[in-house]
Amino acid sequence: MDKFLIKKTKEPPSSGISRGMKQASLHQLGGVVVLEDLTSANQQLSNPDISPDQKVSILNKLKNKKPAKEILKSTGIGRTVHRLCRDENPIVSGAANEVYGFWKTHILHLLRRKPIEVESDAETQRGRASAKKMINLSLNNSVIAEEIEIHVFNKCKKIMNRTYNRLIRKIHFCFKGNEDQKRRVNEMNSDLKEFVEEMYRDVMKVYATQ
């Protein structure tokens, strides 16, 4: 019987998603920095007695980290690295420029991010669609009606509660009885977010009196 069987080496068990992945520690992450390390790096880089080689070595270590903007400011490391970009030693200034450019690109990326609308479940979509329809009914501008509804939804912490419904109704009747307001919004002469804020304050006043 054995001659009909071919023995194969046992395959190692698959570990699924974790294949090729290893657990990182908190300190290994680019966005995690130890404040004491940054403060010490700042002191060393500001010290004129430190050799250029040591400065380059410190700058190379900083290149692996992406500190938050507040930390760059509070530790003073951002300013120090920026100053080193104009260092008379070209190797130091080159390394400093690389770190500064890396940090700047990262921070600008964070600042330029805009909120992305996430799809909702069918019931929420139906509810939001009818809210948009209600605003559009009195405003006659579907694009602005949609934008107003997004501001209302965000203002109500993305929950369609009693406040959301009241706010939508308030806006609907505001346009219905106020041609001037309707014209201003249609002509984009008023900030929609500020307009929603104003309506929200009115709704809250009514809540307070109840």
């Binding site: 570990s15 992305i116 479940d121 929420t124 929950i159 369609m160």
Partner: peptide, 29 residues
């Protein structure tokens, strides 16, 4: 994913709820 297969759970944003704590709210940049 593992030896027995794969499991996926997808949650969509759900705002129309009776209680605030039942909602699934996603803010994404």
């Amino acid at each position: 994913t593992g030896d027995i297969g794969t499991g996926n759970i997808k949650l969509a944003q759900s705002a129309k709820v009776d209680k605030e704590e039942e909602a699934v709210v996603i803010e994404m940049q």
